[in-house]
Simulated assay, not measured.
Amino acid sequence: MLEPTLVYDDDCGFCTWWADYVDERTDLRIVGFSDLPEYPEIRKRLPEYYEECSHLVTEERVYSCGASLEEALRRYDRGGPLSETVGFLRNFEDYARIREWGYRQVADNRDTWGKLLSKTPPVRQESETDDER
């Protein structure tokens, strides 16, 4: 059985901040793009151009881009107001289009958002450690 997993760009400070936020608040496994070779069962379920956005992989399906973060936040707030709001919004035809537009606006401006919310990405932590040796 596949453990629900959030897959993200672990070479992005803003993405790392979000991944840590989700990791601290949910029971999702967090896997960076650079770690995917260790998880072939997850990699084979991702779309061809998986590096274009984050993904939440469950036994039943793969949520990509805005849907991945929406599902991660829904899991964080099970039964709470955010979860209920998401459930309500999913009833509207235009909601998915607006959600994905919002995701793309943030994703395409990660460098700017990273000035506000950022953590050193795991990929850079490893290379900094290697450089110090």
Rank of each mutant, 00 (worst) to 15 (best):
L6F: 12
Y8R: 10
D10A: 04
D11L: 07
D11A: 15
G13T: 03
W18P: 00
D20M: 02
Y21W: 14
V22G: 03
E24F: 02
E24C: 01
T26P: 05
T26V: 03
L28E: 06
L28S: 08
V31R: 11
G32C: 10
S34P: 02
D35C: 04
L36A: 07
L36K: 11
P37H: 08
I42S: 11
I42M: 06
R43W: 09
R43S: 10
K44F: 00
K44H: 08
K44E: 14
P47C: 01
P47S: 01
E48L: 06
Y50P: 01
Y50I: 01
Y50G: 02
E51F: 11
E51D: 12
E52W: 03
C53D: 10
C53L: 00
L56G: 11
L56S: 06
V57Y: 07
V57C: 03
V57R: 10
E59N: 12
E59Y: 09
E60N: 14
E60M: 01
E60Y: 05
E60F: 03
R61E: 14
V62N: 09
V62D: 05
S68F: 05
L69D: 03
E70R: 15
E70Q: 15
E71L: 04
A72E: 05
A72D: 04
A72C: 08
A72K: 09
A72W: 05
R75A: 08
Y76R: 15
Y76L: 13
D77H: 13
D77E: 07
G80W: 01
P81V: 07
P81Y: 10
S83V: 01
V86F: 15
V86Q: 02
V86K: 05
V86C: 03
G87E: 10
F88S: 06
L89T: 09
R90Q: 12
N91E: 12
F92V: 09
D94S: 13
Y95I: 01
A96P: 00
A96G: 09
R97Q: 10
I98F: 13
R99L: 15
R99E: 11
E100S: 11
E100L: 06
W101D: 01
W101M: 07
G102F: 09
R104S: 11
R104H: 12
V106M: 10
A107T: 07
A107V: 07
D108G: 15
N109Q: 11
R110A: 01
D111V: 11
T112P: 00
T112Q: 12
W113M: 13
G114L: 05
L117M: 14
L117I: 03
S118A: 12
S118Q: 10
S118N: 12
P122R: 08
V123E: 07
V123Q: 12
R124M: 11
Q125D: 08
E126A: 14
S127W: 10
E128Y: 10
D130Q: 14
